[in-house]
Design a binder for these strands. Structure first.
Lengths: 211, 211
DNA sequence: GTATTTTTGTGAAAAAAATCACATATATAT
DNA sequence: ATATATATGTGATTTTTTTCACAAAAATAC
């Protein structure tokens, strides 16, 4: 059983590794990864050790090997298909966000209840919410993003789950009622700021990463 | 010394409490808060105990009192002033995001290097980046949001810090080089999704909240 | 007014996560 | 070839966080 924190660290390592690779690096030491990811070198080595990834005493790790191993664990070979519901400002920002496709994540379609929104954003079709169920089933989508107002979030969530979606990234600042087999990640922008402001105002050192 | 996780939980409690209050609730039991915030009732009570907040055996806690105590700890009396740099899609989404003002957070100004962006978004002035230092000093801003492309993030961050900003909410998926007296919260949207997809694909239960 | 139920409150215990200490391998220099 | 410096790797330890177990208070029922 792995913890979320652990998986996030592995994702981070991989991201950095891809960048290193594109820069021509062949090898990397735990210290490099530590510098780039906000964890200690020891933690990096421990994580790799736990993941069954083994390096080379002196000379560190081979970048290629590392990436392959991480991909094996994190499972990132094919394009990851995602849908989005709620074509407001945040939804649109996400649809145009370049970071996703760079990492092999593709928003296949977006949904809304407002007919004015129907059409396309970038190259992503915006469809009526009624078509969600069909689309998810036909395209075997497993992951959804919720960027609707608070009041609508639970309802949209229920629709997603009943259509076959297994994981949701939720931007509405409410706790979604769900079952244990569904994975939910919440992004609460207000809370991020409030928390930041707390530490700024108190002048306290903060310990521990949010992510 | 308090941990970030702890503070985030307190923020969550407070948010729920405000909503309960607006619904007319006078009292609340730890179980209610647990339901609404994704923590156990025991954790709620332990947190309150640690915070020196004391309730009433049977009958739970008084909502008003709770909010006041939490405000005392989290410090939320006056409007929190914030600036934003990077008036792209995400930046604009944040500028129009209603959740902030509801919680007393006000984006006082936004900055960009692109003259086409200058003017206003909603009621927020968009100014040239060169005016950031002055603005921050004059208005005694302590908190900033970074929504610029990766390449520019570190530079913008340095400018912010040298102008007197103490806390940064960073949307660029890079690790900002900083000193321990500066607080940084990172929001990495790709990582949120990647992580979600991992748990969806492996079918593993995830344990532990990201936030 | 006594018993019963509900709910808080907290020291102790358990679990989880991070760090330490040190053994071990390997490249490089001499 | 030998010594030296650099990194990994992991069992043990420490620290942090969460949960348990149960005591105590207050409301309600009888």
């Amino acid at each position: 059983m792995v913890s979320k924190k652990y998986i996030i660290r592995l994702c981070r390592y991989r991201n950095v590794l891809y960048r290193l690779k594109s820069m021509g690096f062949m090898r990397v030491v735990s210290n490099n990864l530590a510098d780039a990811t906000d964890v200690t070198a020891l933690q990096v080595r421990k994580d790799f050790s736990l993941a069954g990834i083994t390096g080379n005493k002196k000379g560190g790790y081979r970048v290629d090997e590392l990436i392959e191993k991480l991909n094996q664990i994190l499972g990132k070979n094919e394009i990851q298909k995602v849908i989005l519901v709620g074509v407001g400002k945040i939804g649109i920002a996400l649809m145009y966000y370049k970071g996703f496709e760079e990492e092999g994540i593709k928003i296949e379609a977006a949904f809304d209840i407002d007919p004015q929104k129907y059409g396309k954003q970038k190259d992503i079709p915006v469809l009526p919410l009624e078509r969600l169920r069909d689309f998810v089933k036909t395209n075997n989508i497993k992951t959804g993003i919720i960027t609707v107002p608070d009041m609508a979030a639970q309802q949209v969530f229920n629709l997603m789950i009943s259509s076959g979606i297994k994981g949701v990234l939720n931007f509405a600042p409410i706790k979604l009622r769900s079952t244990p087999d569904i994975v939910i990640n919440n992004v609460n922008l207000v809370m991020e700021l409030e928390n930041l402001i707390y530490f700024v105002n108190t002048g306290e050192r903060n310990k521990g990463e949010i992510l």
